[in-house]
Each structure stands twice: as structure tokens, then as C-alpha cells.
Design a binder for these strands. Structure first.
Lengths: 164, 164
DNA sequence: TTTGCTAATGTTATAATATTGCAAATTTCG
DNA sequence: CGAAATTTGCAATATTATAACATTAGCAAA
């Protein structure tokens, strides 16, 4: 039996979040970019679980925080975080998830469980090269590659009905 | 020099549309599904070019037709067409495009030109199998695979500024 | 310390995309 | 025909995202 990937097994998620925030600080410093309180808070919220979060979900939590924010605040923070490779947008879900390979150059491929909602980000070199090759056969010059796979994660295949 | 794929070279596009409509009729018959006038008209509109069309673009043309339709009309027609494999939704664009492999079982991969807007749908067995393999390594059971590649098509790489 | 510049945020409004729910019409089929 | 199922019409509303412009914070030079 192969080891389950992170999102699918119990773990101290606070450690995930802490690591993500620490990495983000480092990366922003390297980029000479300012990880302001709002941006950091949004990143933290996005990282609250391995399930993607919608912009308006983030907005709602900010409101609970007492931060009277409007949509542009959230979208700007998310744009910033995306630009620095700290979060990804999952376009088939209109939602955002923390990048688990921040800092590394990577081609994300996302495995989205329809049952529990967790998303696993993979670096899949074989997939990336196959895509590149297929594009090259059409003389197409790729820029951004979106690969999103909806299905069922190992936990939900074996014991349906999870939500965590 | 490799031959340009269909969307990138001049062709009698009316023939594309006619073939798509004819195929659709056949497929719907096989599925015991009703290709009603609205559905057929929506399919025809989606096929007006090799550029994806938004739901509200379709709606606008229906309005010009004198068909006083509301959004649900369009979305229902599009759902129907998707269910029968006649159109695809490009989630990175929130738009729809005619399926060029209707009837065949296929895993679409879309090459989206950011310059001219044309979209080429490919069947890429190498990509499909790489994705399947990567998912299997995580014991993930894929259901739907979305592969969308944004970039520049051969025509726009060699002579930027196209729109057709 | 003021001044001036840039990046970041606030604020209001609105655009763009998509769905819900119910009633009416149409088609299918016994 | 008449009952059941499918399709459509329609109004309202939900959800996601951006435009436009005013304001403030951070920071460096005069």
C-alpha cells in the first residue's frame, strides 16, 4: 500500500500553515514584495485546510475578523499571492488553494476529490512533458498549463463520505 | 513545415458548422435525445467560429434572432449539448466551444491562443495516459480531466495580430 | 519636517457569470 | 384522448469578479 499523500491522512495542519507562512515571508523578502497583514491573513485563511476556498469565503472570514473588507481587497490579495506563487486558482472551482510547492519551479496538476473536497497538488513531470510535446506537434507555444483532475481520492474510494 | 491545424488556416467554415449540426442530429438520435430548435440554434452559434463563446454572447444573438430568451434557456441548452458531448466548456475562459470529436470517445486537451482567441481541441493519448499514471500513483480515481493550455498559436507566433 | 513619490488599501458601484423555483407549454406514450 | 415526463418561459436572485476613483501608508530625498 502506497503512503497516502498529505491531504488524505491526519496530520498537524497547524504545522502546514506555519510552514506556508514562514515560506511566504522568505519568498516575499527575496522578491522584494510586501507581505502585508491583509495578504498574510488571506494566505493563512486559504491554508486553513486542503480544500480550496472561494474569494467570498475569505471575505466572510475577514468580516468575522472585524475587517470591513470589500471584494477588491480579497481579489487583490489573491492576485498578489498568485503572482508570487503562494496560492493557485482552481478554475474549475472558482476557488483558491495554497501552493504546496512555493518557491520551487513547478507545473501544478491538481487532483480534486469530489467527495471530500480535498485537493492534492502534484508536480508531474511526465504530464508536463507530454503536454509540451503535444503542443509542439501543433507548433503551439504554451504559456500557462492548467491541469485539473476531478475524481475520488483514495480515502473516499475506500470509505465514502469523508469531509476532512 | 507541418500542416496547420484547422482553426489556424482558412477554410470553408460553413462546412464545419454543417458537419457539426449533421453529426449532432445523428448523435442525438442514437441517444434518444431531442435536438430541439433552441438547442440546435445554440449549437450552431457556438460553432460560428473556432473561438469559444460565452453564455451571454449566445444569449445576445438569440435576442437578435427575436428569441426573447433568459439566461436559463441558454444554460440549459449548453448543459444538454455538453451532456451529449457536442460542446465543451473551457473553464479558464468561462466559455463554450464546439466539440470537434463528437461521438468519438476522447480526452480533450485545448490549445487556447491568447492572441487570436482560437481554440484547438486535441486528442492527446500521451497526455491522457500520463495523467492517468500520475493519478494512479496517488491512488486517485480520475473522473473528469481538464487540460487547458494558454499560449500562442503558430499563426500568431509568426505574424502577431491575427483575429481570425 | 516637510515634500513628493509609489505601493497599497478603502469605497462605491457595477459587470459578468450562473442558478433556483415555479408555472405553462409541449411532447411522448400508454 | 389523457396522464406522465420533458422542455420552455420567466422572474428573481445568487455567485464571482472588476472598474473607477479617493485615500492612506511607507519611505526616501530636499
Amino acid at each position: 500500500m502506497p503512503p497516502s499523500a498529505l491531504p488524505y491522512r491526519p496530520h498537524n495542519h497547524d504545522a502546514c500553515v506555519a510552514r506556508a507562512l514562514a515560506d511566504a515571508r522568505t519568498i516575499c523578502q527575496q522578491h522584494n514584495a510586501r507581505l502585508t497583514p491583509t495578504r498574510e491573513r488571506v494566505l493563512e485563511l486559504i491554508w486553513q485546510s486542503h480544500k480550496p476556498l472561494g474569494a467570498y469565503d475569505v471575505l466572510a472570514v475577514l468580516a468575522e475578523d472585524g475587517h470591513n473588507a470589500a471584494p477588491p481587497t480579497v481579489y487583490r490579495a489573491l492576485d498578489f499571492l498568485q503572482q508570487h506563487g503562494l496560492v493557485h486558482r482552481i478554475s474549475s472551482l472558482n476557488a483558491f488553494i495554497g501552493c504546496t510547492h512555493a518557491g520551487e519551479s513547478h507545473n501544478g496538476m491538481f487532483l480534486i476529490c469530489r467527495s471530500c473536497g480535498n485537493v492534492l497538488e502534484l508536480t508531474a513531470p511526465g504530464v508536463a512533458s507530454a503536454v509540451t510535446r503535444a503542443a509542439a506537434e501543433e507548433s503551439f507555444r504554451p504559456d500557462d498549463v492548467t491541469i485539473e483532475v476531478a475524481g475520488h481520492c483514495p480515502r473516499c474510494v475506500s470509505e465514502p463520505g469523508h469531509d476532512g
